[in-house]
Design a protein around this nucleic acid. Structure first.
Length: 768
RNA sequence: GCCGAAGUGGCGGAAUUGGCAUACGCGGCGGACUUAAACUCCGCUGCCCGCAAGGGCGUCAGGGUUCGAACCCCUGCUUCGGCACCA
């Protein structure tokens, strides 16, 4: 299961995630499998720093104290974690390998430093693209508005894996996650087309302007061109008389926050730069604009605008009075007036107004135009992705220091491997602000250049904490290993992870980074596998009563310690599994805990007091009417073995809510025979109790162990743990009935029911 | 706007290669036990008509396919999650 962030207190949501995971592990152990169920702590990150600033302590002390408390709480729930394999990412014995990996990636050209406009949160500094959320572009952590800043930052070259990441072959992952990742990677096929600038008074012309389009078939409909405000050629191409306007526009778009840009309701803005481009397919001159609806970071940062067939271009053309020329039309539509961009793709569309290409079906036309351009050296088929390289620099203290040194003479110098780890200083002085204290820690900053021995300065940025979580499951296998990050032998044997569980909120963050990191490790020859997690299950999330995510700051958390004190861990475990499908989650409500608690009490009664009678039930202690002892035993055996069959499948398929329901049904069925001659000592009864306890053991480990032990004592047999028992097998002879009730439907409505012998053929059944 | 998931009693939810709708639990009602209460146990509990037997309606809405639809198809509505001018 995904390791937790040590926020200090475990709330009921953690239990919701972890309890079924433990039940799964126990279930598989009972099948004789060698199960590894590790846990660790995602111990770097911002909350520790905020708490440290507030209380004037070291983030390490805050974090380690929290981890201690969480260890205690996790143990109280009876989860069978392998504590000897625990990983704490803030420990130098872990994060030194983040640094080591970074150096390997640097050598392999998978890590690089670049200055470019980056997403910047006023509280958290730089963010990866995945960490900017929502229409208003806020920080995933603190919710503050994210701005753009030009900064030199470290990146991992994950775009290299774009196509490979789209391939989920062999992965048993939920479709929504695969869809989200696929959309995030955003592969678009189309063409790159080279326009040239036209000669003019201020410019000789001939400069190449590349555009990317998914619709090469609409090339004849391009009536203007748009550059992103920060496109490299804007300054060069702008006519002198347009310069003031263009510069003012560019400046405005850069100073405006995204919020302000969006507040104008996406009304298109832009200005002409006083230059033209030449359409390579027909030599037509079209005017060039700058407009902020074209993004510098996608494609080539420039587009050919085809207002007849693109909504945004249409809006822009209408606003600026630019020509709109239809070049694709369905049958009989050629002359119809356009009242908006025509995009719908019906069959039978053909190119019109497209020179020699007119008359071709649209898809053939696109291919023909690309082929034509290719022959002229004016274009080619091209693929573009939305995925960006992973920006890992963070202006934070509480993270892994990036192991490079800046020297005036030698430039960027990697820290030699033998000098790792670059340790975080133990004493930290925030001066009461959120600014990275490493930037003014002279002892940390000043260092000898490893190349020339002269004075140099350390990098003060630390790594995104998602780096920590991108390989921790490999480290679980050898957390103490000193000579390298992983034990390849063990990694080969135990990974990829057979079953991973965690929330879907990590769809395009952790779950994508982990795949990318695995592929990078493979490419620097550290792994022989392509994917980290074979099977993934997304549990839902428990929300507060207010429907919001549970968090201390919202004050809507439910403390599990109190519930455990009142009902015991098993009741809470079972209740969380019984609430509903595990992938669904939902608002927390303790309503119904009593029902689960009663169920466990009934199991207790069945196991320890089978001969007792119910004063409240006049039928208590008597066999059901018309049933003799032999029939009763058959009924009991059938109930137990049928339950076993379905419960086994439900554990396997993570359908814990119905699993608990079926165990309740069995307990109810047995209760009807309590106090009768077949209860307590009868072979069928004793077997049923045994099966009930075994089936319940993975979910409610404490009470079943106790009842198992008492049973052994009562029979005067030596004690052994229920948790070392083997999962029972279904007796096929126990579950076959001699008759079966069949509903009789007339016109689909049930009109009668008949009891027929099992095994008759269809003809006989129809006759009856 | 685009992508994805989902709409079933008073509530959480069962039922999927299309075949007894509402399993299991909560809540509610009635009863047993008790001097009494709590605990526990037993029974009833979708809506409407009917004394009853029984009948009609019913899985977001409206159509369709089928002997038969919660389930498949079409149209629409609502809720939740993700994305956000991606050319």
């Amino acid at each position: 299961t995904m390791y937790p962030y040590p926020s200090g207190d475990i709330h009921i949501g953690h239990w919701y995630i972890i309890t079924p995971t433990d039940a799964i592990a126990r279930f598989h152990r009972m099948h004789g499998e060698n199960v590894f169920l590790p846990i660790g702590f995602d111990a770097f990150g911002l909350p520790a720093e905020n708490a440290a600033i507030k209380n004037n302590i070291n983030p390490r002390d805050w974090t380690m104290r929290n981890i201690d408390n969480m260890r205690r709480q996790l143990r109280s729930m009876g989860a069978t974690f392998d504590w000897e394999s625990e990983v704490v990412t803030a420990d130098p014995s872990y994060y030194r390998w983040n640094q080591w990996f970074f150096l390997q990636f640097l050598k392999a050209g998978l890590a690089y430093r670049q200055t470019s406009p980056v997403d910047w949160c006023p509280n958290d500094g730089t963010l990866a693209r995945e960490q900017v959320e929502g229409e208003d572009r806020h920080c995933w952590r603190c919710g503050a508005k994210v701005e753009k800043r030009d900064l030199a930052q470290w990146y991992l070259k994950v775009t290299k894996y774009a196509d490979e990441l789209l391939d989920f072959t062999g992965l048993d992952w939920p479709d929504p996650i695969k869809t989200q990742q696929t959309n995030w990677i955003g592969r678009s096929e189309g063409g790159e087309i080279v326009f040239e600038t036209a000669p003019s008074a201020h410019h000789p012309g001939g400069a190449e302007l590349r555009v990317f389009t998914t619709r090469p078939d609409t090339l004849f409909g391009a009536t203007f061109m748009v550059l992103a405000p920060d496109h490299a050629l804007v300054a060069e191409l702008t006519a002198p008389e347009r310069r003031a306007d263009v510069e003012a526009y560019v400046e405005r778009t850069q100073s405006e926050t995204e919020i302000e840009r969006l507040s104008t309701d996406r009304e298109k803005t832009g200005v002409p730069i006083g230059a033209d481009a030449i359409n390579p397919v027909n030599g037509e001159r079209i005017p060039i604009f700058v407009a902020d609806y074209v993004l510098a970071g996608y494609g080539t940062g420039a587009i050919m605008a085809v207002p007849a067939h693109d909504e945004r271009d249409y809006a822009f053309a209408v606003k600026f009075g630019l020509p709109i020329r239809r070049v694709v039309a369905g049958p009989g539509e050629e002359d119809r007036e356009l009242d908006g961009a025509y995009i719908a793709h019906s069959s039978g569309e053909r190119l019109v107004n497209s020179g020699t290409f007119s008359g071709l079906p649209a898809d053939e036309g696109a291919a023909a135009i690309v082929t034509f351009l290719e022959a002229q050296g004016k274009g080619k088929a091209a693929v573009t992705y939305r995925l960006r390289d992973w920006l890992i620099s963070r202006q934070r203290y509480w993270g892994t220091p990036i192991p490079v040194i800046y020297c005036d003479r030698d430039g960027i110098v990697p820290v030699p491997e033998e000098d790792l780890p670059v340790r975080l200083p133990d004493t930290v002085d925030y001066h009461g602000s959120g600014e990275n204290p490493l930037t003014r820690d002279e002892a940390f900053l000043n260092v000898e250049c490893p190349a020339c021995g002269g004075p140099a300065r350390r990098e003060t940025d630390t790594m995104d904490t998602f780096v920590d979580s991108s390989w921790y499951w490999y480290r679980y296998l050898s957390p103490e290993k000193a000579g390298g990050p992983i034990d390849r032998q063990l990694v080969r044997r135990w990974t990829p992870v057979d079953q991973y569980t965690g929330g879907s909120e990590h769809a395009v963050m952790h779950l994508l980074y982990a795949r990318e990191w695995t592929k990078m490790m493979r490419d620097v020859d550290l792994l022989e596998q392509d994917e980290p997690f074979k099977r993934l299950f997304n549990q839902g999330q428990i929300l507060g009563l207010d429907g919001e995510r549970m968090s201390k700051s919202r004050g809507n958390t439910q403390d599990p310690d109190e519930l455990v004190g009142r009902y015991g861990a098993d009741t809470i475990r079972l209740f969380l599994m019984f609430m509903g499908p595990w992938d669904q989650g939902g608002p927390w409500s303790p309503t119904g805990i009593g029902g689960v608690h009663r169920f466990l009490n009934r199991v207790w009664t069945l196991a320890l007091d089978p001969h007792g009678a119910e004063p409240g039930d006049p039928e208590s202690g008597r066999l059901p009417a018309g049933e003799d002892a032999a029939a009763a035993e058959r009924t009991i055996r059938m109930a137990a073995h049928r339950t076993l069959r379905v419960v086994s499948e439900e554990y396997e398929g993570f359908r814990f809510n119905t699993m608990v329901a079926h165990l309740m049904e069995l307990a109810n069925a047995l209760f009807r025979y309590r106090g009768t001659e077949v209860a307590g000592g009868g072979a069928a009864w004793d077997e049923a109790i045994r099966l009930l306890l075994l089936m319940l053991a993975p979910a409610a480990p404490h009470i079943t162990e106790e009842l198992w032990a008492r049973g052994a004592t009562a029979r005067d047999t030596p004690w052994s743990s229920i948790h070392t028992e083997t999962w029972p097998t279904v007796d096929p002879t126990a579950i076959v009935d001699e008759t079966r009730e069949i509903p009789v439907q007339i016109n689909g409505k049930v009109r009668d029911k008949v009891v027929v012998p099992i095994g008759i053929d269809g003809e006989e059944l129809e006759r009856i």
